[in-house]
Amino acid sequence: MDWGFIFERTFSTMIGPEVVIYALAALGLNIHFGYTGLLNFGHVAFMAAGAYGLGVSVYYFHWNFWIGLGMAMVYSIVLALILGIPTLRLRADYLGLVTIAASETIRITVRSRVFKPITGGAEGISEFSKPFYDLSPFDLGRFYSFGPFRYLGRDLWVLVVGWTLLILLTLMVQQVMRAPWGRALRAIREDEDAARSLGKNAYAFKIQSLLFGGAIGAVAGVVQVVQKGSIQADGFNPTITFTIWMILIIGGPARPWSPIAGSMIYWSLIIFVENVLRQLSPQTRESLERTIKLSDINIGQMRYIIVGLGLLLLARYRPQGIFGSREEMALDDR
């Protein structure tokens, strides 16, 4: 087994594009769920809003790439208002129902034939990210290696920008959550009536939380489609939302740095398991094959099964996540 290769892949993943994209998405969800207690089960819709805000503006309306980025934010704001205004006065579960339905509605709508002239339908959109790569100081087609890390120049440029955004936004979240604004959000999460009795406009705070977290979700969507160079409607399916949830739970909700840690752990585990399975010696493979068939397709499934097992163990032995505190968790039971 080529452990050198396995570790190179694992380490490269640990700070790679997926980690950045999912950490950004989880950072947004952390504002919703972790700090405010909003049950957003359609976070992928915000990523789609960001992606299509950029793609549609640039490819179909021929607007400037940078205006497209602005439109990505506008789309996410519109989406947050549409989701939030009718539901945030109601009990928390209604937002959960509406968000999961909305995220599927959006995916199915943009991929439909009817909207193909402005959304690209099932084929999606490409050719919208050139101005971004024009700014790259790296040779897009060349491989760059340092230590155990190895990236294509194109990805390296995405990583430099992506990590800068991720760290700046995480610092911003940390700042506002330490401020009275964040204190009011946590109070609303704990007991909305208590917050209202003390003069806090719970509805306004929840809308702001939905807007802020949604905008960060849209940033994640933008980074994702710029990195891939194309937008595929079916990429924005509910599985993405639940992966983001998993990452948030692994890291521990309501901690500013947990989305990054959760994303690193999740993705490096997936890639590590996958590469180990691929490189099993023929004998081991043969003996395993009496029970499990390890074709290349099955390996893709197997890694999720094994990571899922790890998550179950985490839920059993460290339910508060990596950064959470057990004492705080135990207060739920009282």
Partner: peptide, 10 residues
């Protein structure tokens, strides 16, 4: 409130 609303995790 009749049932006290201490904000437990704060």
């Amino acid at each position: 409130f009749q049932l006290t609303k201490a904000l437990s995790k704060m």
